[in-house]
Amino acid sequence: MIEINRQGEVWVFAEQEDGVLSDVPLELLGRGRELADKLSVKLAAVLPGKGVAGLSADLGAYGADKVYVVDDDLLEHYQSVSYTKVLCELIQKHKPQIVLYGATAIGRDLAPRVASKMRAGLTADCTDLQIGDYEVKRLDQVHKDLLLQVRPAFGGNIIATIVNPDRWPQMATVREGVMAMPSRNGKVAGEVVRESVKISPEDLAVKILDRHRAAKKVDLKASRVIVAGGAGVGSKDNFQLIWDLANVLGGAPGGSRAAVDLGFIDHDHQVGQTGTTVRPALYVAVGISGAIQHVAGMSGAAKIVAINNDPDAPIFSVAHYKIVGDLNDVLPRLTKAIRTKC
């Protein structure tokens, strides 16, 4: 752990694979910029890899004031121990107050390992990050300007705000798509700081024999229209009703976690806290109750239509159009109404 350092920077782990930056670090630079401005400190990206220095310009263009580049042949592929060493040594040296990671396969492997080594706190899958005060009435203490890490907690209708008052850095992971992607500014690259961390063979205990990366099957984030089905759809066969409506709208089919767990649709299509966060022009929620973990992933849609046979389903509280009815009856009619109108 590091001591509290009010001058500490705000950091984003700049995840890249094969020399291509992931989307999440860029999204995190957007929110990171706001946090850093609020704290009047610099926003920096930490970029380990092999031959990656060229990516600094992109990181600068998305808001980083500074990029720490750790370029080493041994860092070509992500590995838990070697990357943990890089992050921990840089954190020890520069004492950032906040470190953010994408909640990707890599980020979720790395961040807890770093947290353990630093004996610092870590909050997974945050849906919002703010700066604010934390008051401990019992001790009559106020911790000023902490990172407020907001995440839906257990159950359906509760949001927890987590803080790390004294064991810094304050660290959090955020899923892809949760924070809006900032626009590229015309700024020239921020300051580039070259760092080196000695990687030894023991730090590369895992041998990668073979690796394969598939292009993403669906890109829900890029869809203007999403028609999502939930447990209420009843079966994989019946999910055809969802595909039909998505097709006439030129949209993508999505699902709640229950629909994914029941095997109605692949996990790639899951919307929500542990799936994809989407902001389409139109979101049609069909047979979805509206648990907070689902709503967290779709409430940013410009227009929301909800179809549910329970008039009190929570999904209706975020819907612009409320349709109370049996989806087996409503969906075919709706598909027809759209097909004949446009």
Binding site: I158, A160, T161, I162, N164, I292, I323, V324, K336, A337
Partner: peptide
Amino acid sequence: PTKVHRIQSVVLTATEQKEVEPTDDGLR
């Protein structure tokens, strides 16, 4: 190191809501 600062029940509401009858006319 992590402490729960606050727990809120979420009230998410659409700014305007219309109830649509599940009939052909309503849907059209």
